[in-house]
Amino acid sequence: MKMLLSTALAALIASSSAFAADLYAPEPAPITPAAPVAVSTSGWYLRGDVGYAWNHLRGASYWQGGPGGFNADFDDADVDDSWVIGGGVGYQWNDYFRTDVTLDYMFDSDFEGSTSGSCGVAADCVSTDRASWNALSLLANAYVDLGTYGGVAGGFGGITPYVGAGIGATRVNWGSLRNTSCDVNDPSNCDGSVEHDGEDSWRFTYALMAGASVDLTCNWAADAGYRFRQIAGGDMFGYAMNGGPGDDDGFYVHEARLGLRYTFNSCEAPYVPPAEPVVYK
């Protein structure tokens, strides 16, 4: 009897051990999350910008006296500052180089100038000349991104400084110029006002840029920067009443700009490791 119980107990223990072995699953090794892997550092982007422009007129001149007359400079010539709005499309070639084409519109900037000489009411007169101008610039630009600094996982919040240059053309649109001449010794004694038709012309333009962008999301970046443009000289106004035409010597434009860029296919995809299979023994 004692032998029979011992045999049964041994068989029960062996059966339990085999059943436990069949259900055994090894404890999986700890998985270290992998860093996100960028799908691509290149892609097309759209941009939009607003800016404020400090404009400097490089000079202006006019023809005085009709046939046999002479060309003279304005005694004073100045233009006001203005706002700029623009947009463009570009391509990010890699982490350090991108190009785009931009179209920018500069809102009206007032011109005020003066000339001196004889007029219809006196031999010694000074004129007041007023007009306005606006401009549309088309530029092809290239930028060098100088690396991304800071930010969190995925690059959000990273700051990327850059420098760039552009080349293209600007259509300068001059409005009518109104000229009023008055006696130097009696400013109330004025000649009748003369209006000259404004001229439009395309001018060669180049630009230099510097700034920094901040990644807001994987697609959106905010941009803050400075741009310098030099616009070549051209036609300003036409002939009227023995005066004109007139020309300007071009502009220096200093701009502070803020913008947004949306890049297609720039989001990062996190690496997901395959699940460990359960092993039965």
Results as ranks from 00 to 15, higher is better:
residue 163 V to H: 03
residue 93 W to A: 13
residue 148 T to K: 05
residue 91 Y to S: 12
residue 155 G to R: 09
residue 163 V to L: 12
residue 116 S to C: 14
residue 122 A to D: 08
residue 95 D to H: 00
residue 122 A to V: 00
residue 102 T to H: 00
residue 121 V to M: 01
residue 159 I to S: 05
residue 162 Y to Q: 05
residue 153 A to D: 05
residue 125 C to D: 03
residue 143 Y to P: 02
residue 102 T to P: 00
residue 137 S to H: 04
residue 135 A to G: 07
residue 136 L to P: 01
residue 112 E to K: 14
residue 91 Y to L: 13
residue 104 D to W: 00
residue 97 F to K: 07
residue 118 S to N: 10
residue 115 T to Q: 14
residue 162 Y to C: 08
residue 157 G to Y: 15
residue 129 D to V: 12
residue 134 N to C: 01
residue 132 S to I: 05
residue 130 R to P: 03
residue 141 N to P: 00
residue 162 Y to R: 08
residue 158 G to V: 11
residue 106 M to D: 04
residue 91 Y to P: 14
residue 98 R to G: 07
residue 144 V to R: 10
residue 108 D to K: 09
residue 153 A to W: 06
residue 107 F to V: 06
residue 108 D to G: 05
residue 111 F to G: 13
residue 136 L to R: 02
residue 115 T to D: 15
residue 129 D to Q: 12
residue 117 G to K: 13
residue 138 L to Y: 10
residue 117 G to L: 09
residue 154 G to T: 09
residue 132 S to T: 06
residue 152 V to F: 12
residue 165 A to W: 04
residue 100 D to L: 01
residue 152 V to Y: 14
residue 159 I to C: 06
residue 149 Y to Q: 10
residue 137 S to R: 00
residue 106 M to L: 11
residue 99 T to L: 05
residue 95 D to Y: 02
residue 142 A to N: 09
residue 140 A to M: 09
residue 104 D to I: 03
residue 114 S to A: 15
residue 96 Y to T: 10
residue 161 P to H: 06
residue 107 F to L: 08
residue 163 V to R: 03
residue 106 M to Y: 07
residue 93 W to Y: 14
residue 101 V to N: 07
residue 95 D to F: 03
residue 153 A to Y: 08
residue 97 F to S: 07
residue 137 S to L: 00
residue 119 C to E: 09
residue 128 T to L: 15
residue 106 M to S: 07
residue 135 A to W: 00
residue 92 Q to M: 02
residue 98 R to S: 10
residue 145 D to V: 05
residue 159 I to P: 10
residue 111 F to S: 12
residue 137 S to C: 00
residue 95 D to M: 03
residue 129 D to P: 11
residue 140 A to H: 08
residue 158 G to P: 06
residue 97 F to Y: 12
residue 161 P to L: 01
residue 108 D to Y: 08
residue 109 S to H: 08
residue 146 L to K: 13
